[in-house]
Design a binder for these strands. Structure first.
Lengths: 128, 128
DNA sequence: ATATCATATACCGATATTGGAATACATCCA
DNA sequence: TGGATGTATTCCAATATCGGTATATGATAT
């Protein structure tokens, strides 16, 4: 029998690449501008090989670009692939909005009930 | 030496849960409404244990809810956790927008150049 | 009680990831 | 040429995944 891959490689797409919290941290850092590996290492306080490896994954899925300059390598953000994730989640946007609405409605009706019973007003502190 | 987890479990958060394409498919299907496992199996054409396992992961990260009804289990979408992903990607939204702008500008300037040389107009077919 | 239907769980093999340490590679400088 | 600096790659152990098959649990009906 032929065995499939256990789990999609992190380099398959941005969904997988970005599932790793550390990689999200790197992207956040790079959103402030291009940085050489060394500064990422200092900024995040990880060891250098780990930084390089995470950058490698991000590079492979196209979330970062590299610019070689002497013995330094400047990495910069390329957020375009994140759009796919953004678009996909946007598909569900109205669900959580409706849910928040329902939660808010419930909270408000509860407060209204409390008010009608002579309790504290919404958002107010008890008399002091 | 103590060894850390190799890779974050899929049940750690919605980022990891949703990295798996199959799980995204399930969520898409459930966005049309509550469904019993059996119908998900039929709809997607996977075998039943696999469907149950994916639902288990989604359940654990709070992306679906279950309603027990006799021997059936109705799963429904709970998209709220996707908001975190949406919000995170939104952080980068202006990056890809700028990039698209730049691409568009480049394309337009190229077309303008072509027009000035007497080539076909933008979006138009050649004279026929 | 027993058979049937709906779903969950356990087991297995293959895979590939993660962090850490050591090392290779590549570039610059003296 | 040789040393120092910046970065990538290799090796390792532990872990958890995914799909498939078989089996267990749970509820209903006869």
């Amino acid at each position: 029998m032929i065995w499939d891959m256990a789990r999609a490689p992190t380099t398959l797409d941005s969904f997988n690449a970005v599932a790793e919290p550390r990689r999200r941290q790197v992207l956040g850092l790079l959103s402030e501008g291009e940085l050489p590996v060394n500064e990422i290492v200092d900024s995040l306080g990880w060891n250098q090989p780990q930084v390089s490896k995470h950058l490698g994954v991000l590079l492979e899925v196209g979330l970062v670009k590299v610019r070689h300059a002497g013995r330094q390598r400047f990495y910069s953000l390329d957020a375009a692939p994140l759009k796919e994730i953004h678009d996909w989640t946007a598909t569900f946007e109205h669900f959580w909005q409706h849910q928040l609405d329902r939660i808010k409605e419930r909270a408000e009706s509860k407060q209204a009930l409390a008010r009608s019973r002579g309790n504290v007003p919404p958002g107010g502190l008890s008399a002091s």
